[in-house]
Design a protein around this nucleic acid. Structure first.
Length: 791
RNA sequence: UGGGGCAUCGUCUAAUGGCAGGACAACGGUCUUUGGAACCGUCGGUCGUGGUUCGAGUCCACGUGCCCCAGCCA
């Protein structure tokens, strides 16, 4: 076995890895460093798991490093307990953050010095207005802010005040340090954000040493830089904060203490939430405090502590996180993805044993002596697919399949599941029925000869005969010996909420009735926990307590780490097995259909009806519109030009050297964005020259667009670019035909598909020819040729 | 409301302007001493309307919808 095989990628390619690839190619960074910065103010949940997967996974994939950093800049919210739990959860997930955990609080002295540096540069000031006043002065989204009377304090005064803030001379709220950026900015975040505030509180790490604390924005950028972070990844709600991040780095990076580190950049990704649950800390707290669950580690909770107690393995969480994609949109992930990841993980790691959860007594009337059978822990397919041919025992030892067995005793009295017997079987029922036969897993076929019922007519006991081995059976069911099996409690967990999007549903309700922040609690699933008393085969008593089992046909289980005791076993169901029978059985019941969930109402009508209406033009714009129309410009372009003087001006200049109608298309459709942003490096004459080439048929649009793109970047004359590269349109059939033929010959399968009716392939063939000719072929001519050849 | 972000199968996610692909789910089948797993197959999508182009999910315009920002929280 070669050890040089590359470690598999954790993160599939996405917009962030694209950025990193380019940064690496351009030599901007030698090594990729990311960071995962939770605030220790609560327990980690699946959202943290996904975010950490991105941070640690990307660092892993690029052979870089990821720091684990406690973002502990708010002493009032944070606790050592949370920090420890967070670290334990991250360790449980298996992440490697090197020799030490980082803490923002470790950098308080350095951060303080950088803040002083900003003051000295005249870029920060101590403001002394009240919080209410500051909010008022900040303005609103459509009202610019007003400078605080303290905004123009001298450097000396600011320094003096800031030092006295640190020294503890002022009460909470008396002063703050603010960055002097732009009070009129349309980005509210830039209206002189707070850098430091006074908080007289005990910090769980620094105690009473500090009474001023850096804000998120200040701490994030500076500690990233101090930690050598290159790519600072966070979620989408911080997009607006990036401007502060960059502003701070513009003024602090490159000089001590940030003269030895790469300049970090922030990139944002979309959050992922999960169906049938909530992940906001506030809402999770309500579930705990309202008694809807038994605690932060309740197995129904999406916290990592809850998932861990439920029995989910970290491997499953990672598998799940890896399957969830990264994009720039907030998204809600299908719960089936999580469940599927857990099942996939457990399928090959959880030995099979039998347990009966809802027992129905069976008497084997013709079995006089107990019979002990040896049962394999693993089904044939897991054994077959084992890479080394070995399979694990419950204690973890890997052994040959024939050794991975345990004894199970068949006795005169057994238990089977109540559901595995039916007096009136539905269609397709493959279990026991009166007079019918079924196979007891690995123990023989039985026939039901009779049954007893109680006063309500419920079946209480079956009388069965053990048949010869070769007897036919309707199906296979699991069982346990009534005398040998161990009683146990089974906790069956279901989804925490009855609807996939409890928060969205609650928001809808608010509109109709009185708004209530607790509305999401209405959707808590009253049946999210069902407790049943059953029996499990005695072999489990000898296994390690943390063994995860597949209880055959019942799902994956393990013992509750807290509540399960030697004399009183308690098993948590980690996840059910996929149960296609339950679905079909339910569908055949008309009553079930009536109770089926109604169509989703949470998603408002997304499709629009009615034609879009253009905003009305001012008289001036109307005049311009008519002017352009008169010049032969198409209406769609003319309308844009009428509203945008900048584009119109450019067009007027270019029109001195080329036909206006043609130019208008280019100005509006291809140059619009660049012209508006003022980034366009092309001249009107340059565009006109290009359009003339196009009009003369010397080049095609493909060549023109490519040249234009390059001209926009470099500021060179596009016609010059065309000339230099020797590009010109090839329309000559004699030249084109051999290329077309070659392309068709190279793709016989596509040709067949095209002839079979997949006409979309026409574009593929044209594209291939265009590539072959570096864009010089006349695409219309090529299209004709392809059509002609393919008949 | 000013600014910003975003919109592709039921869900998540791909597609230098050139074959709308993959995964999960669902459905059907094969196999199976688990109605599990595995294997094979099927179904199904570019928010809308225009425009540019030989060709648009991708570029342009106008709409629509969702999310974020007016904490001395993060």
């Amino acid at each position: 076995m070669s050890t040089s095989t590359p470690k598999p990628r954790l993160v599939s390619p996405n917009f962030i890895t694209e950025i990193i690839d380019e940064d690496l190619k351009a030599g901007r960074y030698k090594k990729i460093v990311t960071r995962f910065p939770p605030e220790p103010n609560g327990y980690a949940h699946l959202g943290h798991a996904i975010a950490s997967y991105i941070d640690f996974g990307i660092a892993h994939d690029y052979g870089g490093e990821c720091r684990l950093r406690m973002d502990d800049t708010n002493p009032e919210a944070e606790k050592a307990e949370y920090a420890e739990a967070l670290i334990a959860d991250m360790r449980w997930l298996g992440w490697d953050w090197g020799p030490r955990v980082r803490y923002a609080s470790d950098y308080f002295e350095l951060l303080y010095q950088m803040a002083e540096r900003l003051i000295q540069k005249g870029l920060a000031y101590v403001d002394s207005v009240s919080p209410e006043e500051m909010a008022r002065l900040r303005g609103t989204v459509d009202q610019p802010g007003i400078p605080s009377p303290y905004r123009e304090r001298s450097v000396e005064e600011n320094l003096d005040l800031f030092r006295r803030m640190r020294a503890g001379e002022f009460p909470n709220g008396a002063h703050v340090l603010r960055a002097k950026i732009d009070l009129a900015s349309p980005n509210m975040k830039l209206r002189d954000p707070v850098l430091y505030r006074i908080v007289h509180a005990e910090h769980y790490r620094t105690g009473q040493k500090w009474c001023i604390y850096p804000s998120y924005d200040f701490a994030q950028a500076t500690t990233d830089a101090l930690d050598g972070v290159t790519h600072s990844l966070c979620s989408l709600e911080f997009v607006d904060n990036r401007a502060i991040y960059d502003w701070l780095m513009d003024h602090l990076w490159g000089e001590p203490p940030l003269d030895q580190t790469p300049r970090p950049r922030q990139y944002e990704f979309g959050r992922r939430s999960l169906e049938y649950t909530v992940v906001s800390k506030r809402k999770l707290r309500k579930l705990v405090e309202g008694g809807y669950v038994r605690g932060w580690d309740d197995p129904r909770m999406p916290t990592l502590a809850g998932q861990r107690r439920r029995g989910v393995r970290p491997e499953a969480i990672r598998r799940f996180a890896g399957q969830v994609g990264i994009s720039r949109t907030n998204r809600t992930v299908d719960i089936a993805l999580l469940e599927g990841a857990i099942r996939d993980d457990l399928n090959t790691t959880a030995p099979r044993v039998m347990a009966v959860l809802r027992p129905l007594k069976v008497v084997l009337t013709n079995l006089s002596e107990p019979r002990t059978v040896t049962l394999p822990y693993w089904p044939h397919d897991v054994i077959r697919e084992s890479p080394d041919g070995l399979v694990p025992l419950p204690d973890g030892r890997r052994v040959k399949p024939e050794q991975a067995v345990r004894p199970v005793t068949l006795t005169r009295e057994l238990y089977i599941e109540q559901d595995d017997f039916a007096l009136n079987p539905p269609k397709g029922f493959k279990r026991l029925t009166p007079g019918g036969t079924v196979r007891l897993k690995m123990a023989g076929v039985i026939r039901c000869d009779g049954y007893q019922t109680d006063a309500q007519g419920r079946v209480t006991e079956l009388h069965c005969t053990l048949l010869p081995e070769e007897a036919r059976a309707a199906g296979v069911i699991h069982w346990v010996s009534a005398s040998e099996a161990v009683p146990a409690e089974f906790r069956l967990y279901d989804r925490l909420f009855t609807v996939p999007h409890p928060e969205a549903e609650a928001r809808e309700l608010e509109d109709e009735e009185a708004p209530d922040d607790h509305d999401f609690l209405r959707f808590v699933n009253p049946k999210s926990l069902e407790v049943v008393q059953g029996y499990i085969e005695p072999s489990v008593l000898a296994d390690p307590k943390e063994t995860r089992y597949q209880l055959e046909r019942n799902g994956y289980f393990w013992q509750d780490p807290l509540d399960s005791q030697p004399g009183a076993l308690v098993f948590n169901r980690i996840v059910t097995l996929k149960d296609t029978w339950a679905r079909t059985a339910q569908e055949s019941e008309p009553e079930a259909r009536r109770a089926a969930p109604k169509a989703k109402t949470t998603e408002g009508p997304r499709k629009t009806q009615g034609a879009p209406s253009e905003p009305p033009l001012t008289p001036e714009q109307q005049a311009r519109l008519e002017h352009f129309l008169a010049q032969g410009v198409h209406e769609a372009e003319a309308r844009v030009l009428a509203r945008e003087p900048r584009l119109a001006e450019f067009l007027m200049q270019a029109a001195q050297k080329a036909p206006m109608a043609l130019l208008a298309n280019w100005v509006v459709n291809d140059l619009g964005a660049a012209l508006r942003s003022g980034q366009a490096k092309i001249t009107p004459a340059g565009l006109a020259g290009l359009v003339r080439l196009l009009e003369a048929g010397e080049i095609n649009t493909r060549i023109a667009k490519d040249a234009l793109a390059e001209a926009l970047q470099t500021g060179r004359d596009p016609a010059e670019i065309v000339r230099e590269k020797g590009l010109k349109q090839v329309s000559d059939a004699g030249a084109l035909e051999p290329i077309v033929e070659r392309i068709l010959a190279q793709h016989p399968d596509k040709v067949a598909a095209y002839r079979a009716g997949k006409t979309g392939l026409l574009g593929f063939f044209v594209g291939q020819v265009m590539r072959e000719t570096q864009g010089q072929a006349n695409p219309q001519r090529v299209q004709e040729l392809v059509r002609q050849k393919l008949g």
